[in-house]
Simulated assay, not measured.
Amino acid sequence: MGVTKEDVEAAVAAALSPTHLVVTDTSGGCGASYEIEVVSDKFEGKRLLERHRMVNTALAPHMAEIHAVSIKKAITPSQAQPQPEPVDKAQA
């Protein structure tokens, strides 16, 4: 059997200590393709490409068995917080 969703979750969690992590098997259950959303303090001060590399590095031991990884979100906890709606001064 290929890499499980739990394998991916464990690898990312061990490397990045995320405050939020969602791993979705998009391969129909065979473990060949995953979508990942991760929120981690370790992304602070890193550019998006560096963040993606950090996720890929965490998954390196499994990449021989994974066909595709789509990183949907790789953000910091502050970026994950809802942003306040701008106030329309004409209506205020």
Rank of each mutant, 00 (worst) to 15 (best):
M1E: 03
G2P: 07
V3Y: 02
V3H: 02
V3D: 01
V3E: 00
E6H: 05
V8C: 00
V8E: 03
V8N: 00
E9F: 06
E9R: 04
E9G: 00
A10M: 06
A10E: 10
V12T: 01
V12D: 02
A13I: 09
A14E: 08
A14G: 01
A15E: 15
A15D: 12
A15I: 09
A15P: 01
L16C: 02
S17L: 09
S17D: 15
P18T: 10
T19H: 11
H20R: 03
V22H: 06
V22T: 15
V22W: 10
V23E: 02
D25E: 09
D25R: 03
T26A: 05
S27T: 07
G28C: 02
G28L: 03
G29N: 11
C30H: 12
C30F: 11
G31M: 08
G31K: 04
A32C: 12
S33L: 09
S33E: 13
E35S: 11
E37K: 05
E37L: 02
E37N: 04
E37D: 06
E37V: 13
V38Q: 00
V38P: 01
V38K: 02
V39E: 01
S40W: 11
S40T: 15
D41F: 02
K42Y: 11
K42V: 10
F43P: 01
E44M: 03
G45H: 08
G45F: 10
G45D: 13
R47I: 14
L48K: 05
L48Y: 09
L49H: 11
E50N: 07
E50M: 07
E50C: 10
R51G: 04
R51D: 12
H52E: 09
H52M: 02
H52N: 10
R53H: 14
R53A: 14
R53D: 12
R53P: 09
M54E: 15
M54T: 05
M54S: 06
M54H: 01
N56L: 10
N56Y: 14
T57A: 14
T57H: 00
T57N: 12
T57P: 07
A58D: 09
A58G: 04
A58I: 13
A58R: 00
A60P: 05
A60N: 08
P61N: 08
P61F: 10
H62D: 01
H62N: 01
H62F: 15
M63D: 07
M63L: 14
A64F: 10
E65S: 10
I66M: 01
I66F: 05
I66D: 04
I66L: 07
I66G: 03
A68M: 08
A68Q: 09
A68F: 08
A68P: 07
A68G: 06
V69Q: 00
S70D: 08
S70Q: 08
S70L: 14
I71P: 00
I71G: 00
K73T: 12
A74M: 07
I75E: 09
T76N: 02
T76F: 10
T76W: 13
T76A: 03
P77T: 05
P77N: 06
P77D: 09
P77K: 00
Q79L: 12
Q79H: 07
Q79N: 05
Q79W: 06
Q79D: 12
P82E: 09
P82T: 07
P82G: 06
Q83Y: 05
Q83P: 02
Q83T: 12
Q83F: 10
E85D: 15
P86H: 05
D88T: 13
D88M: 12
K89H: 15
A90T: 15
Q91S: 15
Q91Y: 13
A92W: 14
